[in-house]
Design a protein around this nucleic acid. Structure first.
Length: 832
RNA sequence: GCCCGGGUGGUGAAAUGGCAGACACAGCGGACUUAAAAUCCGCAGACCUUAACCGGUCGUGCCGGUUCGAGUCCGGCCCCGGGCACCA
């Protein structure tokens, strides 16, 4: 008898599949089949696959194979997010050029992908660090520049001292660098390139409402990140000021302006800084406050800072009633949000109330639930049911109407307007690093900033760059790169030496898969329109507000540039859970890292993949237990032993199982088979609970094993047995592709198993004749009785009441009610 | 503080208002074997009762509610994980 040996089976089929590039190839966009685009997030080519990758790709590969079997034209590509810092660090450490390091890692990882039996269309492979890809980053950048979606400005930016480069806001996690969770991010004033993602803030936010295929968690995170807040700006004149000095505040509650008792400005507000210039005492205190804010920000304690402030001695005039309001500096006002200045309304804002109480500032009511409320607990922040009080001509007006009317009034009077502010800021994309896409502009002393003409793309990254120095962009030290002719005047000019954030690469890579070899455009519109949007995208939740918001922005920008038709890139998003070990996230320092290579070496790729799907629902964290992988290995070995035992006698013949008289053994097995088919089919279309549909295959195999003696005696008949093993093999194909392929061949079939039609469940064969239903008395289980599957309610009730144990439990008490659910249960309600 | 998940045997988990613990891991017992491995068969929530069978009680983080019936629905808490947070 043959022994299951994945180390013989798997490399053999891997070699056969590698030799046939057409096997997993998507058909062109002219195919008559319905399309299905399934995609897993592309990896950074670190050189080694992580077990989390294995989980991610096992889910996607199972889905791709299932859809192939269902007759779809499947696009299932893979690529490499291959620019970025680790390549530079490796170069500094080991003296290998980033390009060599990256490309050899890619070669290594491609082998691992092959060993895992993942079915990708490698003809469409995308490698973001190669010129044929990044030239289109440059092309898009120039298109954005033309449309004012890319711009350059000097501003405060996040600086990671370890990466030696600027970071986008999305790459700062709680004050720390996303790559170094123990390195605090600094603020620096630098001139940088930005992409105008804020132009799409409303679209990106409102679009989420029309995305039922995305997890609520991700949508909520994006909503929070965009942070839209609708309100108004109101401009206050500074009292006694000759040069028409003003302060503009942002408020979401302009209706409470009659209750304002001061203005509070951030310590780094320009007006405060201006006054500091001539007021040494103020300057000292403001500097102290700034230092305090910085420390608090660095330790992520900004929210816990006790509120305090400084009276500047200046005052502003409330444009609604002419009142004189003192101007303070407050440590709870942030310069980065709104206008960096607020009107303080202690009666109707928690923070203002706390502040006013501390400094004895007046607390004036302007809003109440109704006009004659006397003892209102303050601060009162109600809105929906409230009306204005003590507010001049607005008194009595409902808050919701006043919000609009008062903003209009301010606008008409020229001292305010309705505005919306966002937490989202424009995306800073300049990086002071070597291993990224060169930003395609030059600076000329006479002509200023000039875009590189399109026919000169790509601006190639030079090789042989000294990466060891730490200050400034490495490209700045390559004279032959920096010094160029100005495209406008042909005079001497200098190239931009910063490179692009690597998140630019991943913002549109999935479009390139549709037309990966196009040398005249990023991709053809026909191909992109055919394949997009992506039907199913699978990846980790850690990209919820990085990649997943950038790529939604990029898609909209591409739509406006005119290269695609869709506004959203992804119809359904699935975020799989982490793989953990001993209850903790895997890390080298904890020494709990599971190596996919080790798992494959011990149990084979099929067992490793199948365990990743079996051990937990895919959206939850998965505790990796090696004994569990061994269990899956034993299961596959049992399938292999049983199937190969009978396979030689099952070759040929197409007789269907239903055409011959079935014994009870055969009938029972076919029933389980068709129930299993139904279960797996249903799970693929909805819940993706592979952790329950793989057990349904195990149950089928356990039943087959239990009837081995009957099969040995030939009691099942060849046709029935053929259908059983044939279908079992097909059901395994999405989960254990190597074994399924091997058994497919053993059963005497030609071709790729995952190109066979997915089996159909026959409801007649799946139907049970008799079922067991629980009988309860007062909701407590008393017995389980056997009845015909199609039994009617009256018969069920009668059978339940006739049962000995039930009679004993009732003990003569009157039955007042019988609840009978057909096919489910009987519950007898008795009195006393 | 606010918004999402989650809390069920020794472990991973299952159960979309209807038999709590499918399936698997680990464990225990048995068969096979000189022996071990592998394989196969069986037992397996806790407690009480019994020589054993039989039988019974309790049990899904806690407290209450709705229902003939609640792990599941509702209200109020506790704990764990994640996200956001002086956002005006």
């Amino acid at each position: 008898m043959l022994r299951y040996d994945p180390h013989e089976i798997e490399p053999r089929w891997q070699a056969a599949w590698d030799a046939d590039p057409a096997l997993y190839a998507a058909e062109p966009h002219t195919s008559p089949k319905p399309k299905y685009y399934v995609l897993e997030m592309l990896p950074y080519p670190s050189g080694k696959l992580h077990i989390g990758h294995v989980r991610n790709y096992s889910i996607g590969d199972a889905l791709a194979r299932y859809q192939w079997m269902n007759g779809f034209n499947v696009l299932h590509p893979m690529g490499w997010d291959s620019f970025g810092l680790p390549a530079e660090n490796a170069a500094i450490k080991n003296g290998i050029a980033p390009r060599e390091w990256t490309l050899s890692n890619i070669a290594e990882m491609r082998k691992q992908f092959g060993r895992l039996g993942l079915g990708y269309d490698w003809a469409r492979e995308v490698t973001t660090c190669l010129p044929n890809y990044y030239r289109w980053n440059q092309w898009f950048f120039l298109e954005m520049l033309k449309r004012d979606l890319a711009y350059r400005k000097k501003s405060k930016v996040n600086w990671c001292p370890n990466c030696n480069t600027v970071l986008a806001n999305e790459q700062v996690i709680g004050g720390y660098c996303w790559r170094h969770d123990d390195v605090l991010v600094e603020q620096r004033d630098l001139t940088q390139w930005f992409l105008r993602i804020t132009k799409y803030a409303d679209e990106l936010l409102d679009g989420l409402d029309a995305m039922p295929g995305w997890p609520d968690k991700v949508k909520t995170m994006q909503r929070n990140w965009i942070g839209r807040s609708e309100g108004a700006e109101v401009t206050f004149a500074v009292d006694g000021c000759t040069d028409a000095m003003t302060v503009t505040v942002f408020t979401t509650r302009i209706d409470t302006i009659f209750g304002a008792s001061s203005l509070q400005l951030a310590p780094d507000h320009p007006l405060i800084q201006h006054w500091c210039g001539s007021d040494a005492a103020l300057s000292v205190e403001v500097d102290r406050m700034l230092a305090e804010q910085k420390t608090a920000r660095d330790t992520d304690m900004l929210g816990e800072l006790p509120k305090h402030g400084i009276d500047t001695g200046h005052a502003a005039i409330n444009p609604f009633n002419g009142e004189r309001l003192p101007i303070w500096v407050a440590n709870y006002v942030l310069s980065g949000y709104g206008t960096g200045a607020v009107m303080s309304v202690p009666a109707h804002d928690e923070r203002d109330f706390e502040f006013a109480t501390k400094y004895g500032l007046p607390i004036k009511r302007a809003v109440a639930p109704n006009l004659d409320t006397d003892d209102l607990a303050l601060p009162y922040t109600g809105k929906e049911e409230a009306v204005l009080i003590d507010s001049g001509e607005w008194t009595g007006e409902p808050v919701l109407e006043a919000l609009e009317a008062m903003a209009k009034h301010a606008e008409a009077g020229g001292f305010g307007k309705r505005t919306t502010t966002y937490r989202l800021k424009d995306w800073g994309v300049s990086r002071q690093r070597y291993w990224g896409t060169p930003i395609p502009v030059v600076y000329c002393d006479t002509c200023g900033m000039q875009p590189v003409p399109e026919d000169q793309l790509p601006v190639l990254l030079p090789e042989q760059v000294d990466l060891t120095e730490v200050d400034g962009s490495p490209l700045g030290r390559v004279p032959e790169f920096v010094n160029v002719k100005c495209p406008a005047c042909e005079g001497m000019a200098k190239r931009e030496t910063d490179t692009m954030d690597t998140f630019v690469d991943s913002s549109w890579y999935f479009y390139r898969y549709t037309d990966a070899h196009n040398s005249t455009a990023p991709f053809s519109r026909e191909a992109a329109d055919y394949w997009f949007p992506i039907d199913q995208y699978i990846g980790g939740v850690e990209h919820a507000i990085l990649h997943l918001i950038y790529s939604r922005f990029w898609t909209r920008a591409m739509r406006d540039i005119g290269v695609i038709s869709n506004s959203e890139p992804v119809t359904r998003l699935f975020t799989q859970g982490m793989v953990i070990k001993n209850g903790a996230k895997m890390s080298k320092s904890k020494g709990n890292v599971v190596s996919p290579d080790d798992m494959i070496a011990k149990y084979g790729a099929d067992a490793t993949r199948m365990y990743a799907l079996f051990a937990a629902p895919p959206d939850r964290d998965l505790e990796w237990q090696e004994d569990g992988v061994a269990g899956i290995y034993r299961f596959l070995a049992r399938v292999y032993r049983l199937t190969t035992k009978y396979a030689p006698s099952l070759h040929g013949g197409e007789g269907s199982a239903t055409q011959q008289a079935l014994g009870t053994e055969g009938q029972a097995l076919l029933r389980t088979l068709h129930q299993t088919i139904a279960k797996i089919t249903e799970d693929f279309s909805g819940r993706w609970h592979f952790n329950t549909c793989i057990p349904s295959i195990m149950i089928l195999v356990n039943e087959l094993g239990a009837r081995e003696a009957a099969m040995d005696k030939g009691l099942l008949g060849v046709a029935t047995q053929r259908e059983l093993f044939r279908s079992l093999t097909l059901l395994l194909a999405p989960f254990a592709p190597f074994l399924a392929q091997e058994l497919w061949a053993e059963l005497g079939h030609e071709g790729a198993v995952f190109r066979q039609p997915w089996p159909l469940s026959d409801p007649e064969l799946a139907r049970e004749d008799t079922i067991e239903i629980p009988v309860q008395v007062l909701g407590k289980l008393v017995n389980v009785i056997k009845v015909a599957a199609d039994v009617d309610v009256e018969t069920m009730k009668a059978a339940a009441q006739a049962d000995d144990k039930v009679v004993a439990r009732i003990a003569g008490r009157p039955v007042v009610k019988i609840v009978a659910v057909p096919g489910k249960l009987v519950n007898l309600v008795v009195k006393g």
